[in-house]
Design a binder for these strands. Sequence first.
DNA 1: AACACAGCCAACCGCAAAGTG
DNA 2: TCACTTTGCGGTTGGCTGTGT
Length: 259
Amino acid sequence: MGRSPCCEKAHMNKGAWTKEEDQLLVDYIRKHGEGCWRSLPRAAGLQRCGKSCRLRWMNYLRPDLKRGNFTEDEDELIIKLHSLLGNKWSLIAGRLPGRTDNEIKNYWNTHIKRKLLSRGIDPNNHRPINESTPSKTTPSVVEEPVQFDFAGPDQLRTIKPEPVLLNREEGDNSGTTSEKDIQTDDDWVLNLELSVGPARTTRSKANPNSAESTRRWGSELSGTQAVVCLCCRIGFHNESCRNCRISDVRTTIWESKIL
DNA sequence: AACACAGCCAACCGCAAAGTG
DNA sequence: TCACTTTGCGGTTGGCTGTGT
């Protein structure tokens, strides 16, 4: 039994992509657009599985990708987003125009982790390293590590959050928050219940790319809420921020409520 | 020059979510 | 509702490159 492979592995190329393969993929997508990754390789004349094609396109060939080193602002933005979202690389990438989740993930693991450690901050929980781990019997009151007050781009500041009471009774699965929404540290629970905007939209045949484009741009939604993207709100706006060029952006991440 | 090691990053893998009939 | 397919995400791996010995 077991899961059937995503593609017939025999006769499939693996490993690094050649220039010829890149060109075939780019040409095909230029002509037909993204989507239907499963059938794309055959149609494009590639001996690759759809997943591989998608990854290559998303992480390397997309024309809108930003090349080059991360800026200091991007560093800080990633750190702040990670403190809120954890390893949700795709969500973080959605807030960094031109950057991919894979790129950010790699950058986190190779640079930022070290950077935080050198600052005496645990990259996993964004707390000072020497801060003792709370005992399991201690009442579940923790301080949310980072919270921002978005008064405006020039007024970025970190605010000290109210202590958050996070009691979780054993076996109590009531409420709307799923287990996935909860970061657990044994009995310690930080329930961010993030409402991340733009919400991951559902895919449909009519618009097969909607989820991905949403992930990428974080702004291609209709909505009536905020009109300023995250980077602006926390003061990291730059000219390349594509989100800001779209006037009707739904940005609900900051409506997160801490229970 | 040769080797060992570390850092980096593209790509792979497995799983879960979402879509479809 | 269910089974199956497709897509997307996050963790991990492997190979290339640079640096030190």
